[in-house]
Nucleic acid binder design. Structure first.
Lengths: 345, 345
DNA sequence: CGCATCGATGGAAACGTTTACAGTCTGTGT
DNA sequence: ACACAGACTGTAAACGTTTCCATCGATGCG
């Protein structure tokens, strides 16, 4: 009984109709009520299901949008993927996810794979491909980028308004009374943009920038940078380019016996799902991944219509939680004052 | 210049060969060196790329394994997906990910979609579909389950050895000297299995089970259950059915002014990526998601060969971190109480 | 010298659809 | 009674591959 899947021919025979009529019935063409009824029962009896591969071959479309994502384990990427699915769903389309693992070669392969599958569009998240390599790889397929990690060219793109987020974070610390604010910077494109925005925000407030330390976009990177940073005098607050780095900072602070936020305020960036469960809960800049994914999906599906919106900035929001507060005592604070006073156990 | 993609015919014309020869050259069949060279240059000149849709139509295979995953934002699911990709990669295949969002209807649709795409196999993660609905949906396609959330039937399946993990966790607390150990239980299938394993482990140690509270598999669920549990007398340790619930517990403990692990020890389950960054770092049972994904992928690809391994249990490992320690209260853990403790070090 | 063998090639038939086109009815206005 | 519209329906040609089969020289062997 494990016969191979029934085809449209089987349905046609069963329903005494031609395959053309069956096809029309299935796709909402003009068919007589009688034929439609026969076909429907035949479909049900046989358990027929359309073969989308064959269909794609003749129509030239697949109903698929290819998504290449750096890493599925990043909660932010997962949110973006979800956003893409949202808008694809309502159009009866689907996403096909492929991961490059931050390797440009894998990214190129992923694009090839997807195009071989006739995807109707491509959403590239955090793409590192140089403009020419990219153009060659995607050829005719419509493309939209999210938070592209490479130089811009004419392709439509959605990108966080990093500067606005950083400004909000720095303002928040300034408003709380901090004057000497350090920064832990990332090394990728958005890391650099955030660092520049930080410098600009400090300058705007008429303040000298605090110490800046760069590191990998990871907990370890953040911790290492924090070690260097917390050695400096007078720093009462630190703004991190990512939440992951912020947890590294939290650890380093704890090791040095610094209380957060009393001795040092911490602000992160991204608002990863678990940021609120840290101790203390992390004040951070929320990156609306799902919205960004939605926007990108719309962009890629509608790019032919208005070709004049190459870059779309979405606004982040500051989420104030427990890791930031007013400086306790500006002139006494600092590692020197409390050195060697770890209070735990 | 935006001509449509070159086909194998174009290559054949350009290389003065028949399409059959080109196809053979591309797929490693027998071709003369001269022809091969001509074809290769033609491919390069034209930028030809095989159309996998057409290919799939004739071969009946797609090189794709469909993966239906409850939710991309769960780090554990992402790890499993990664594991699947690992083994697919080394076979030149790819994963096609689709999410049901814990809705059985969406799960069924996802399976239909995937089968319409002619996937060569299906990996279902946390499937909730009843056996008959499932059987109807997958028809002839090979299937493997991961941590199926429904009754078993004959389908190959990989599943965590929940009982072993729970036993390790409970033993760990017992060895530390705890006697009154509470449990926060989950409601899904694995939650129930873990609860039963907890009860068994307590019985095995000759102890009465501590209070058990069930809740949703979320931070809020854990927090609510913890509120009920921490009111009880004498509880010096709590074992949670998941890390997410454990952070809820941590919060509830903090609110009540209970120190962890001094007043109450906490052990989680899963070892989600951020468990080590909590404060204190969470002692937990690590679920090797990536390995489970790998195992499932192998299972689905090789199921015809040995049909006799329907259920494969993978072993979790206990990761001891800062959230668990000996009970502080001296008179509860006197020598008498310790007498029955199986101490293995 | 004839015959089987072999390596390389091309022709053509699939694979399961959609869709342009050409029919076949039935009813209607003249 | 006739043409003609209109509503349905069927035939057949695509879509871009793989693969079976036949063909064709050339080579080796008896």
């Amino acid at each position: 009984m494990s016969r191979s899947r029934p085809t449209i021919h089987d349905v046609a025979r069963e329903a005494r109709a031609s395959i053309a009529t069956v096809s029309r019935a299935l796709n909402g063409g003009v068919v007589s009520a009688a034929a439609l009824a026969r076909i429907e029962t035949a479909v049900a009896r046989l358990g027929y299901r359309r073969n989308d591969v064959a269909r794609g071959l003749v129509t030239g479309r697949s109903g698929l949008v290819g998504v290449v994502v750096p890493d599925l384990m990043g909660p932010l990427y997962a949110q973006m993927a979800r956003g893409i699915e949202d808008v694809l769903d309502e159009r009866g389309m689907h996403a096909m996810l492929v991961t490059d693992h931050l390797e440009p070669a894998a990214e190129r392969r992923a694009i090839e794979l997807l195009r071989g599958r006739q995807v109707d569009g491509l959403v590239l998240i955090g793409s590192r491909l140089p403009a020419d390599a990219l153009r060659a790889a995607v050829a005719g397929t419509p493309v939209a980028h999210v938070q592209r990690d490479g130089p811009d060219d004419g392709d439509p793109q959605v990108r966080l308004d990093d500067a606005a987020g950083v400004r909000a974070a720095v303002r928040h610390l300034l408003d709380a009374g901090h004057r000497r604010i350090g920064h832990i910077a990332g090394t990728r494109r958005d890391g650099l943009e955030r660092r520049d925005a930080y410098l600009a925000a400090m300058a705007e407030a008429g303040l000298e920038p605090g110490p800046v330390e760069a590191g990998e976009f990871t907990e370890e990177g953040g911790e290492a940078a924090a070690e260097r940073l917390l050695g400096q005098r007078d720093v009462t607050a630190v703004f991190c380019a990512s939440d992951r780095m912020a947890v590294g900072l939290l650890h380093a602070a704890r090791r040095r016996g610094l209380a957060v936020p009393d001795d040092v305020s911490v602000v992160g960036f991204d608002d990863l799902t678990w940021a609120r469960y840290l101790h203390p809960p992390l004040t951070t800049v929320r990156q609306p991944g799902r919205d960004m994914g939605r926007a990108a999906a719309r962009l890629v599906l509608e790019s032919p219509f208005d070709a004049a919106v190459p870059i779309l900035r979405v606004a982040p929001t500051l989420v104030v939680r427990g890791s930031s507060g007013p400086p306790s005592d500006p002139h006494v604070t600092g590692p020197a004052a409390r050195a060697g006073a770890p209070s735990r156990r």
